[in-house]
Simulated scan of single mutants.
Amino acid sequence: MDITRNAALIVIDVQKGFDEEEFWGPRNNPAADENIAALITAWQETERPVVFVRHDSAKPDSPLRRGYRGNDFKEYVQARRELGKGPELLVTKTVNSAFYGTPDLHAWFEEAGITQLVVAGIQTNMCVETTARMGGNLGYRVLLPLDATHTFDLTGPFGWRQSADEIARSTAISLHGGGFAEVVTTVDVITAARA
């Protein structure tokens, strides 16, 4: 695996509100937070750009709504922000894709000459997947360390229900098989970034 010198790490919606299990239901991948933290540390140590994305939900009952404690980044993310190690950007959004946030992420990447993205965070099949798909559509080389994401069980049409693990696998297959992103592991990404 080859990681470019200015590959950007996009850390999506790692917010306290996602710890409210009574709202979201069962989640998968308890190691996701540890892997996300390791990616941020590796990116900062190698002085690569890190984009922190925060979802400011417009829904009044959402644990991610502005003004509510759940809107804040989880402690391990907040502690790593603004350490002065490499370029950093905060993007806020109200929809799934970080490319529809403020400031304009695509413009920032173009100005910095960034062509490769590593996408991690919450939820695998929502904002992470949407951002990865759009990144692929915009011509970026997207890497998705699946073990640095997590999601929740979900019920869809006709009473169909999938577990968080099933949803994560479906997302990985769609993104990788569809050519939107290369699905990888955190260890492989960090090893390549430090090589």
Rank of each mutant, 00 (worst) to 15 (best):
G67F: 02
G178M: 01
Y68T: 11
N6V: 01
F152C: 05
Q116N: 10
T151V: 06
L90I: 02
L39H: 12
A58P: 03
W160R: 04
G67R: 08
G113Y: 04
V91C: 07
I114W: 01
E21S: 09
F23D: 08
F18N: 11
P60K: 13
V184E: 05
E21D: 07
E82P: 14
P103T: 06
G17M: 11
I114M: 02
K85F: 09
D188L: 00
Y100P: 04
L90D: 05
V189C: 07
T41S: 12
F180E: 00
R54E: 08
K85H: 11
G25H: 13
P26N: 15
F52V: 06
A31W: 03
A107Q: 14
G178S: 00
G113A: 03
E22L: 07
E21K: 10
L154C: 10
Y68W: 15
T155R: 04
E20L: 10
G17R: 11
D33M: 14
V95S: 14
Q162P: 03
P26V: 06
W160Y: 01
A181Y: 04
R27S: 15
V184R: 15
G139S: 00
A172T: 14
S62G: 10
A168G: 15
H176A: 13
E47C: 11
S163Q: 10
Y76F: 14
A193L: 01
L9V: 11
W24E: 09
E166T: 05
R27V: 05
A164P: 13
T186Y: 14
T185Y: 04
R133N: 09
N96G: 12
I3P: 10
N71F: 03
N35T: 13
C127S: 14
G84H: 12
E47S: 12
L9P: 09
V11E: 03
T4D: 05
E166Q: 13
A164I: 06
E166C: 05
P87A: 07
N35R: 13
G86D: 02
G113S: 05
A132D: 00
E88N: 03
D188C: 00
V53R: 08
G121H: 09
G159H: 06
N29R: 06
R54A: 15
G177M: 00
D13L: 12
Q15M: 09
L117N: 06
I114T: 15
M1S: 08
T92Q: 09
N71W: 07
D153M: 09
T94M: 15
K85R: 15
F18W: 10
R81E: 08
A112K: 13
P103W: 08
L138S: 01
V189W: 02
A168Y: 10
G70A: 14
F52P: 07
G156C: 02
A120H: 05
R81D: 03
N96Q: 08
V142N: 02
M134K: 11
Y76D: 08
D33W: 06
F99G: 01
Y76I: 03
A168Q: 14
S163W: 03
K16E: 14
I36T: 04
V183A: 09
N28Q: 14
E111W: 10
V11C: 13
F158W: 12
F73C: 02
D2C: 01
E110A: 09
T191H: 01
Y140G: 00
R5W: 02
P26T: 12
I40Q: 05
I122Q: 15
D72W: 05
A168N: 10
F23L: 04
D188G: 06
V50W: 02
Q162R: 11
A148G: 13
A58F: 00
I10F: 14
P30T: 03
